[in-house]
């Protein structure tokens, strides 16, 4: 077995352990809540005698010791059973899968936009650290970081959708284009612009700053001076030698922030009526649909874990110095 395969194997093992731990934490969180499913059903059906409660508890296994319940719960999650929604009376996993595409599309577009434009701004300003553009970018980045994502989202709607009527106010599709493949795609992109922009701006603020700091540091390092000394052209020095190393902290940050990205997506989905997982989570709270809420919790944690694994892989491609199993 090569070192790479072994390293990836151990990372996978860690990831599974981590997910298991999340399931345990979620399970004990449920135990913290006052009352249980039997009380909830009793309230729902208007029967409250002790016999009914005992029957329901026996039926759902709620009379078992906690550890046995935990075992059953982990077993179910391992078989991809996240329980059944008390509102839809459907398996939670199916509800999540239906909405997965919308959330991944939104979060993915924002992330690519933020990393791409952020690195471009970072490189541009790092080469002119004393210029007015550079200080303007720093201030803009601080403003972007302090602006709540739901606020910029609403303001975008006011300006671009309500005042200038350039883009749709919300939702993901228009019935107009039903059945027409090209029209549907353009329509989807039109609906995507404002949500992705509102979500991307915060991360643009963070990554442009990070890219700038990291680029400034790399440009001062010895190997860049060597590259210049041997007469490499400025373009080659900046884009080939420096950028490759300067981009690593940005990738690290992007990988670590997938959880925050999903949190932001939740707020954006609510503002734009975007039919994703985040909006389902918010709706589930108001429907007191705890199986769905907790299912989303576990599922999105799994998404973050997978994203971290992918970041790890991207690392290895960009920077061969990073060896598997080394300290992070």
């Amino acid at each position: 077995m090569t070192a790479l395969a072994r390293g990836i194997g151990s990372r996978l093992g860690q990831a599974i352990g981590l997910l298991l731990a999340v399931v345990v934490v979620v399970f004990f969180l449920i135990q913290l809540a006052p009352g249980d499913a039997a009380l909830y059903l009793a309230g729902d059906q208007g029967v409250g005698d002790a016999e009914f409660l005992a029957r329901v508890r026996a039926e759902y296994g709620l009379d078992q010791p906690l550890l046995v319940q935990l075992g059953t719960y982990i077993g179910n999650v391992a078989q991809l059973n996240l329980g059944e929604s008390t509102y839809f009376n459907e398996p939670v996993l199916g509800l999540i899968i239906e909405r997965l595409f919308a959330t991944v599309l939104l979060a993915g577009t924002s992330l690519i936009f933020a990393v791409g434009v952020g690195v471009a701004i970072g490189v541009y300003t790092a080469r002119r650290p004393e210029s007015p553009t550079s200080s303007a970018a720093t201030v803009a980045s601080l403003v972007g970081f302090s602006t709540p994502v739901f606020y910029s989202a609403i303001m975008f709607i006011v300006v671009f959708a309500a005042k200038w009527r350039l883009l749709p106010v919300g939702g993901i599709e228009d019935v107009r284009y039903d059945g027409n493949w090209v029209g549907e795609t353009i329509d989807l992109l039109e609906h995507l612009i404002l949500p992705a922009l509102s979500l991307g701006i915060i991360y643009l603020a963070i990554y442009s700053r990070l890219a700038r700091a990291s680029m400034l540091e790399v440009l001062e390092s010895d190997y860049i001076r060597t590259a210049r000394a041997k007469g490499a052209r400025e373009r080659v020095v900046v884009y080939k030698h420096a950028l490759r190393n300067a981009i690593i902290p940005v990738i690290t940050a992007a990988g670590l922030q997938v959880g925050n990205l999903l949190s932001g997506a939740l707020l954006v989905e609510v503002v734009f009526a975007w039919p994703g997982i985040g909006r389902l989570a918010v709706d589930s709270i108001f429907r007191r649909d705890s199986p769905t809420l907790l299912g989303i919790m576990i599922f999105s944690s799994a998404m973050v874990i997978v994203a971290n694994l992918l970041t790890d892989l991207v690392y290895r491609i960009i920077d061969p110095r990073i060896r598997v199993g080394g300290s992070r």
Partner: peptide, 19 residues
């Protein structure tokens, strides 16, 4: 790490939902 992989806003929503 357990607390880092759970999306923050979702986690605080769940805590408020439960408490």
């Amino acid at each position: 790490e357990i607390f880092q992989v759970m999306p923050g806003l979702l986690f605080s929503m769940v805590v408020i939902f439960l408490l």
